[in-house]
């Protein structure tokens, strides 16, 4: 959705480069297993799509002659080091196996939970949020919220299926969206442009 929007409108105002870069870090550190394990064709293709689309979005915002001019550089000022460092420490201390790939995988789970924060802060600073940008954040949050249902279903149907690190991080991630969801639905109901209160 976001890539299509940027490609079609040649405009990325209201889009946080910081969040996109955090997602790129999340995907690369999590999908290292592309190199040594195979789950399914669907799984492999989706991993490549996630890595590729975020890399493409970053390229557009940073380097595209027209798109880069529309980037809200002065507004997108979230200090991502305050997210990356704690997640890295958490990944080093709370994991299931003290190996490089496992620590990076766990780090990516923690980082993903908070990766949307720079985008939410930028949305709050944006007066009139572009409909497509609002939809992108809604779909991203909705996608993760559906995982909650997926986990409940798998817990009930697959004996021994449990993964506490993923469950707790995923629940926090979805909780971070709650406020946004509220205002998204309200603007939808009233047929108004989305704007978050500051």
């Amino acid at each position: 959705v976001l890539l299509l929007k940027i490609h079609a409108t040649k405009n990325c105002s209201g889009v946080s480069l910081k969040t996109q870069e955090l997602y790129a870090i999340v995907f690369v550190t999590r999908y290292l297993d592309l190199l040594f394990s195979f789950i399914s064709l669907y799984n492999t293709i989706m991993k490549l799509i996630f890595i590729g689309s975020s890399a493409c979005i970053i390229w557009y915002i940073r380097f595209h002659r027209v798109v880069s001019q529309t980037y809200d550089r002065e507004q997108d000022t979230f200090r991502v080091i305050f997210l990356i460092l704690p997640c890295l420490l958490l990944g080093i201390f709370i994991n299931h196996e003290f190996t490089i790939t496992e620590i990076l995988w766990t780090f990516s789970i923690y980082l993903e939970a908070v990766a949307i924060l720079p985008q939410l802060v930028l949305l709050q600073r944006t007066k009139n949020v572009d409909t497509l940008t609002g939809n992108y954040v809604f779909l991203l949050g909705g996608y993760r919220a559906l995982y909650l249902l997926n986990w409940i279903y798998r817990f009930l149907t697959e004996p021994g299926y449990r993964q506490w690190i993923v469950w707790i991080s995923g629940t926090i991630q979805t909780a971070i969206y709650c406020d946004f969801f509220y205002y998204y639905f309200q603007s939808w109901r009233r047929n108004e442009k989305l704007s978050l209160p500051s």
Partner: peptide, 10 residues
Amino acid sequence: FREEKEKDEL
């Protein structure tokens, strides 16, 4: 705590 090793979720 132990948990499943196969990482089949995205």
